[in-house]
Design a protein around this nucleic acid. Structure first.
Ligand code: MN
Ligand code: MN
Ligand code: MN
Ligand code: MN
Lengths: 151, 151
DNA sequence: GAAAAAATTGAGCCTATGCTATAATTCTAT
DNA sequence: ATAGAATTATAGCATAGGCTCAATTTTTTC
């Protein structure tokens, strides 16, 4: 049986457990996809910048060790997002390029939106790096509209 | 040596590797803290709603198995955020209450802000659940101001 | 006051992401 | 052409966060 409590009640009632758990499940899924998106987007950036996308560069930019990158690239290859020529850098497949382009577009909107709210460049860069993976199509569209409306 | 490429160049130049990796490092740190925040916030919600915060309820609301919750609660206890009376539910320590209050306040601002942009209730709830953990103090303040300005 | 139901605990397993250390390979200079 | 530098590959290990299944303990119900 429920017990009484001296604590201040929440403003809103607790959402239905099924509804709430669905939200948490979605969030965990987004979290799992985040790393893949960051890798693929970064690889596209390196390639489009005119360089090869080498493990050492990816590692340096992500701030992880090179074997960590090697392992993830193997997984991305299995998933059909990248192809590798041994000792030659990594390339995006058609599917990988698609993921990269979409991630990059979304990332850009999020970062630009934060900047449009007056957030500093440094903080916008860091926050956007995490926020981007949790922004749905609907929210992304709302960000776009707000930037248009805002001037 | 850099090789030429037929690809479209990025709009902005690649950021400095050190700067970029710092952003990714920060993001990974936020990701690690996210789960703790969700637990503590949910525990506070259950308690403040007048119920005990039992493992089964926490599990149902997070959408994970109960032993998963048991393991995390043990960790939260070690971290000094909760205390447990065996078979009696979990309680927040003073430190835990502080984390919960801060997380809840931030969560609310993020969700309200999304709603203020016209995002639907369901989507705002899901997106906020992930976004909240990547919103710095500066960005949070920008969200608050935008809501005030906006009307 | 037992039997049944509910909840917690514990063991063992798995995957994802990290790491370090070292070997193997390729590239670059001389 | 070979030595040295750079890069990639491989092996082994650790931690976080999940899971299932079964044992234990507490609480409820009759
Ligand atoms: Mn990105
Ligand atoms: Mn990112
Ligand atoms: Mn929250
Ligand atoms: Mn959350």
């Amino acid at each position: 049986m429920p017990r009484t409590s001296r604590s201040i009640p929440r403003e809103a009632p607790l959402p239905d457990a099924g509804v709430q758990s669905e939200g948490f499940r979605e969030t965990r899924k987004a979290r799992r996809g985040a790393l893949v998106e960051d890798y693929v987007e970064l690889i596209a950036d390196l390639i489009d910048d005119g360089n090869e996308a080498r493990q050492v560069d990816i590692a340096a930019r992500l701030g992880v060790a090179q074997p960590t990158v090697a392992k993830m690239l193997a997984r991305l290859a299995v998933d059909g997002l990248v192809s590798r020529k041994p000792y030659r850098g990594v390339f995006l497949t058609e599917a990988g390029r698609k993921v990269a382009d979409e991630s990059r577009a979304r990332h850009r909107v999020v970062e630009d939106f934060l900047r449009s709210l007056g957030v500093s460049e440094e903080v916008a860069r860091i926050d956007a790096e995490g926020i981007e993976h949790h922004v749905s199509a609907e929210t992304l569209e709302a960000f776009r509209k707000a930037m248009t409306r805002g001037r």
